[in-house]
Write a protein that binds this DNA or RNA. Structure first.
Lengths: 168, 168
DNA sequence: TAGCTGTATGTCAGTGACTGACAAGGGGTG
DNA sequence: CACCCCTTGTCAGTCACTGACATACAGCTA
């Protein structure tokens, strides 16, 4: 983040990152599949949090309710991480290649959510659509919230869910 | 597509593509921003078709109806293009880097749709959510249809729209 | 016709992301 | 102590992509 803030992502070489961390470039690429991946490590904990949150929701809840409850339950985690995720998001917003990667990550997350829904008895197609919709709303909300802290995440989620329901 | 079918996308060098087209590698990169872009040229016509289709829908239609009417109206175009898009999709499905690019393209398309909705008086947040939701359903449908031709696009769209409406 | 201009292409050298193969160190276990 | 596993370093190589410069060709004008 130091280097990215100073020179931008594209103008920071992998060798520089590695040197800044006190290792070789080769070692860097053994820890991260590629240069972009260095910014997307926390995804795993978010995925775990969402999956276990889904497990807490009563099984008879409708799919979208299940998802939104899970989203709400990880809000504190995201709020706590804001000091790290805000500058990170600034770098991503300035770099198209990173936006591509970010979309890939949220897509993977959506697939995981779809799998969780299917595991709770939601039919396949509907689970996929629900997960994609829920995830795109969630990503939209968190993105807007990272741009501007107020209103908070849960309030934004409420509004987005309202918008979503009135759309149909 | 010949080369990609034979050796796969990753194992086909840009120099080979260029040579196969009878030009230099440098010339290749003057026509396409990067190697992946060579597979995503048709997006512009789809965008135009969708935007003009949106223009045909009466202005007082609710946002999601507007989008789904537009989607339905481009189905013939997609069905006509199937001979080209099916092998193309096979290459994309086999190459994560291409899936990333594809998601970026559909995201750009969703933003364009959101802009069109806003131009029709839909408030900003709702337009963004509607466009993302519509687009993700549309992408999901076309993806499934490219994997298996039957049932057809419009029928799949009907079912997906049903799934979507019953989710709420 | 000769000259001028703009645009598409070729050539070349260079940077930087990433990879495979091999060697070297260091800690735990028998 | 010998052995093994895991991490790291080293090195050479491939390939995507870029900037600078030269060249060819088409159309327009004097």
């Amino acid at each position: 983040m130091e280097l990215f803030g100073k020179k931008g992502f594209d103008c920071t070489t992998a060798a520089e990152i590695a040197a800044h961390a006190g290792v070789t470039e080769r070692t860097f690429f053994r820890h991260f599949a590629d240069k972009r991946e260095v910014l997307f490590d926390g995804q795993a904990v978010l995925l775990d949090a969402l999956l276990s949150a889904i497990g807490e929701v009563p099984r008879n809840a409708p799919p979208l309710d299940t998802l939104f409850r899970a989203f709400r339950s990880v809000c504190p985690l995201l709020e706590a991480n804001r000091p790290f995720s805000e500058p990170r998001q600034a770098v991503i917003s300035a770099t198209p290649a990173l936006q591509e990667r970010e979309r890939a990550k949220t897509a993977a997350l959506a697939e995981a959510l779809a799998g969780a829904l299917r595991g709770r008895g939601v039919p396949g197609e509907k689970a996929a659509i629900a997960a994609q919709i829920g995830m795109s709303v969630f990503a939209h909300v968190t993105g807007a919230w990272l741009n501007q802290a107020a209103p908070g995440l849960t309030e934004r989620l409420d509004r987005a869910e309202q918008d979503l329901r009135t759309l149909i």
